[in-house]
């Protein structure tokens, strides 16, 4: 644990993520305004002591919307990644352990999914399912499945041949038990690394879809939606897009730093070099 804190990437990335989570959790305490209250005479106010980040085209406080938007954006991203992890690692471990026909079938299905650009896949699914908070987690999560599938399949292929898996078999464990008790705990550390990278991707995907109009319905704020609303006034009132965009960039940066840091930290070869 001590050496984990000596990794700068993990510390910086982790701090950013923790800050964002705190903002999301304590949103009502951080702003006196309601995120949905329209105040048209007050529209497009530049940042002032009253509205720290100005107001948007309906006169709503931008800081307030960003703070509440953090809830939606982070919730959607976490749920989407959770879906991707559950399905990706489940099928990945099965494919990697059983091999043969099962592996070929699963891998080809994943290859087909990967043939679509993730955003396009999200758009197709989004158009089919319709926009709601729940559907959004699905259509952001599904394109992330291949990433987790490939990692867990690769790790499983590697450790499936180890003697302790053979030993587990030799004491009479069933295949399901071997996968759950012996392979899964060994795959998880790798999953955690991909998780933080995947989170960055999910935040970006949420923003992109929000920007394209496939985000959460109005007036619920999400970061992508805020950028979208401000895009027409990007030059006359740049604070709306500017601040929300900065939050997106910062959060993605945080997750990517954390992911890189974790990868370095968990890579036994690099650890060996350090010590």
């Amino acid at each position: 644990m001590k050496s984990m804190l000596s990794n700068k990437f993990i510390v910086i990335g982790g701090t950013i993520i923790v800050l964002m989570l705190l903002i999301a959790i304590f949103a009502p305490l951080l702003t006196p305004y309601e995120y949905g209250t329209v105040n048209l005479p007050n529209k497009h106010q530049p940042p002032s002591s009253e509205h720290v980040m100005g107001t948007d085209l309906y006169g709503r406080d931008v800081w307030c919307r960003i703070v509440y938007g953090a809830r939606i954006s982070l919730y959607v991203s976490f749920s989407a990644v959770a879906i991707a992890i559950i399905f990706g690692s489940f099928f990945g471990i099965i494919a990697g352990y059983l091999k043969g026909v099962v592996d070929i079938v699963f891998s080809r299905v994943i290859d087909i999914m990967m043939a679509f650009p993730p955003l396009l896949l999200s758009l197709i699914l989004g158009a089919c399912l319709g926009t709601s908070l729940q559907n959004m987690t699905i259509y952001i999560g599904v394109p992330l499945i291949p990433m987790f599938f490939r990692v867990s399949r690769g790790v499983t292929l590697n450790i499936g041949e180890r003697t302790y898996i053979m030993a587990a078999k030799s004491i009479g464990s069933s295949r399901l038990r071997i996968m759950m008790k012996h392979i899964l705990p060994n795959v998880l550390p790798q999953i955690f690394v991909v998780l933080s990278l995947g989170m960055g991707g999910a935040i970006l995907a949420e923003a992109a879809l929000g920007f394209l109009g496939l985000g959460v319905p109005q007036p619920t704020p999400s970061w992508g939606l805020i950028v979208n609303e401000g895009k027409l006034y990007m030059f006359s009132a740049p604070w709306t897009t500017g601040f929300s965009g900065a939050f997106i960039a910062l959060t993605v940066l945080g997750f990517n730093l954390l992911g890189d840091g974790l990868r370095d930290f968990l890579d036994p070869k690099l650890k060996h070099l350090e010590s």
Partner: peptide, 15 residues
Amino acid sequence: TMIFQEPMTSLNPVM
């Protein structure tokens, strides 16, 4: 039952 040659790798490292 069986005992394997490599005691270093025949136990699950995370259990």
